[in-house]
C-alpha cells in the first residue's frame, strides 16, 4: 500500500514539476521569422526558458493579448485605440508598447516585369482598382494581378491606412495567408504585384517607390530605410499587457540589447537604435 502510494506521489511530483518558464509570443506573420530566430538564440543562452513563437497576424496577436492567451504580442502596426480600450476594460491597463525593429514595407513584382518604379499614388490606384493594366504605369499591355494580405494582418492594415489612405482594396485582390505566400505567388506570376516585409523579398524584384511623380524613387535598402528616404517604412512592435517583469522583462531587454538587435539585422530588418 505504502509502495503504491509512493509510486503515485512520484508520478504526481514529476507531473507537476515546473520544466522552466514558458513565454508565449503570438502575432505578426512578418515578424515570425525574426521572432523565431530571437527565441532560438535566447533559449540557447537560457536553457530554462521556453519561448513559443507563432504567427496568425498582428490582429490575432493583439486579440490573444486581450484574451490572455499570449504573454507577448508581435505586431507590425501600432495597437488601435479600440484595442487599447479592450485591454483597459479587462486589465485596467493600456498595454506596453516596445519598438523592437524597423521595416521597409516592400512592393514586389515578378523579375520579368519591366516596370521599375511606382509613385505612392500609382500604388494606391492599383490597389483600389483605378489602374488595372501594367501599360498605365509604363509596363506591358497586361492585366495587373493583385496579391494582398488577409485583414487580420498588420501589414494589410498598415498598407490600407498609409498607402490606400483608408480606402478599400479592390475585391479581386487575392488575399494570401502570409507575406511568404505573397512573394511565392508574385514570383510565379509575371503580371503579379504584392507587398510585404523586406525579409521576405529574396528572389524577386523590389520596385522603387517615389513619394510623388517629381521625386526620385528609392529601393527598400537598409540605407534608404534608415535615412527615411524610402517612403514606406514602419516600426515593428512587441506589446505586453502590463509592465514587463521577470523573465519576460529579461527577454525584452535582451532583444533591445546589441546582441538582440544584431540578430534582427541578420534576418533583414533594421535595428531600432
Amino acid at each position: 500500500m505504502f509502495k503504491n502510494l509512493m509510486i503515485i506521489l512520484t508520478i504526481l511530483a514529476f507531473g507537476f514539476m515546473m520544466p522552466g518558464e514558458t513565454i508565449t509570443v503570438k502575432g505578426s506573420d512578418t515578424m515570425v521569422i525574426f521572432g523565431q530566430r530571437l527565441a532560438e538564440e535566447y533559449m540557447l543562452k537560457n536553457p530554462n526558458v521556453r519561448i513559443q513563437v507563432t504567427g496568425g497576424g498582428s490582429g490575432t496577436g493583439i486579440s490573444a493579448l486581450i484574451n490572455g492567451t499570449t504573454d507577448l504580442c508581435n505586431s507590425s502596426r501600432p495597437m488601435k485605440k479600440s484595442e487599447r480600450e479592450k485591454l483597459k476594460q479587462r486589465y485596467a491597463t493600456l498595454g506596453v508598447e516596445i519598438k523592437v525593429a524597423k521595416d521597409g514595407l516592400s512592393v514586389y513584382v515578378n523579375d520579368t516585369n519591366p516596370v521599375q518604379e511606382l509613385t505612392l499614388e500609382q500604388l494606391k490606384n492599383i490597389y483600389t482598382g483605378n489602374i488595372t493594366n501594367w501599360k498605365q504605369v509604363g509596363g506591358q499591355d497586361a492585366k495587373i494581378i493583385l496579391y494582398s494580405r488577409e485583414n487580420n494582418s498588420g501589414t494589410y492594415v498598415y498598407f490600407k491606412d498609409h498607402i490606400l489612405e483608408g480606402e478599400d482594396f479592390v475585391p479581386y485582390a487575392q488575399n494570401m495567408p502570409g507575406t511568404a505566400a505573397v512573394v511565392n505567388a508574385v514570383s510565379k506570376d509575371k503580371n503579379g504585384i504584392g507587398y510585404g516585409g523586406a525579409a521576405y523579398g529574396k528572389g524577386i524584384k523590389f520596385l522603387k517607390i517615389k513619394t510623388d511623380a517629381k521625386s526620385p524613387g528609392f529601393e527598400p535598402t537598409p540605407e534608404n530605410i534608415r535615412s527615411g528616404d524610402y517612403p514606406i517604412s514602419r516600426f515593428l512592435y512587441i506589446y505586453t499587457r502590463t509592465r514587463p517583469t521577470g523573465e519576460i522583462k529579461k527577454y525584452i531587454d535582451w532583444i533591445l540589447s546589441d546582441e538582440g538587435q544584431s540578430i534582427i539585422t541578420k534576418v533583414g530588418y533594421f535595428p531600432i537604435r
Partner: peptide, 12 residues
C-alpha cells in the same frame, strides 16, 4: 482612472 501597478496588476 486606470493605472498599472508594477509587479501587481492594473487598477481602476
Amino acid at each position: 482612472l486606470y493605472y498599472d501597478i508594477p509587479n501587481f496588476g492594473g487598477m481602476s
